[in-house]
């Protein structure tokens, strides 16, 4: 029996909305999933995570990144890399995949904009919270199958698409420029 067979099983899992599956019967490569916490911009979204277990586990932390695209100050909107202390220097051998996934869920509910992974998102979070929340909810709807649509943002995105831009690139440019179509167009043309 391997160490982490035990970790995520149990009746609490269903209530916390986290799960872990194996990839190719290889228990060093796992796919995790967390559901966005209620009353946040990520509410109801299904976020997939790539989890790699090092040989030295549990003495070193698992390597975790988001596969599902997400708009969050502590997660790269480009690579899905996560800035979370327990995945780095604050790891402890008593932690489990369950505590990691629950910590990530907690991170979605409480961002740390002063310790950002994605500077653009963190700036928006601090300076324009309403736009940040709308953007995060829109990304959750589009990439994580979240239930809440942001019609206002979708209209602006439609305009950009009609100009011939790729949908994802246009979404990134608009999100990064507080949904100002003129500034987004400019950055799309110069990139």
């Amino acid at each position: 029996m391997t160490h982490y067979d035990f970790e995520v099983t149990g009746s609490k899992v269903a209530r916390c909305h986290i799960k872990v599956d194996m990839v190719n019967d290889n228990f060093l490569e796992l796919i995790g999933e967390i559901i966005g916490p209620p009353d946040t911009a990520y509410d109801g979204g299904k976020f997939k995570l790539e989890i790699n277990i090092p040989d030295t586990y549990p003495f070193n932390p698992p390597k975790v990144k988001f596969v599902t695209k997400i708009w969050h100050p502590n997660i790269s909107s480009v690579t899905g890399a996560i800035c979370l202390d327990i995945l780095k220097d604050q790891w402890a051998a008593a932690m489990t995949l369950r505590t990691v996934l629950l910590s990530l869920q907690a991170l979605l509910a409480a961002a740390e904009p002063d310790d950002p992974q994605d500077a653009v998102v963190a700036k928006q979070y601090k300076e324009n919270r309403k736009t940040f929340t709308q953007t995060a909810r829109h990304w959750t709807n589009v990439y994580a199958n979240g239930p809440h649509r942001e019609c206002e943002l979708e209209k602006i995105l439609e305009q950009a698409k009609n100009m011939g831009f790729d949908e994802h690139k246009a979404r990134v440019a608009l999100s990064s420029s507080d949904w100002n179509l003129e500034r987004a167009t400019e950055s799309l043309l110069t990139s």
Binding site: F59, N60, A92, A93, A94, M95
Partner: peptide, 17 residues
């Protein structure tokens, strides 16, 4: 054996830090 291996890496209690 388990805790000695951990203490060589980090001199903290893995449960309560």
């Amino acid at each position: 054996d388990c805790i000695d291996d951990w203490l060589m890496r980090s001199f903290t209690c893995p449960s309560c830090m």
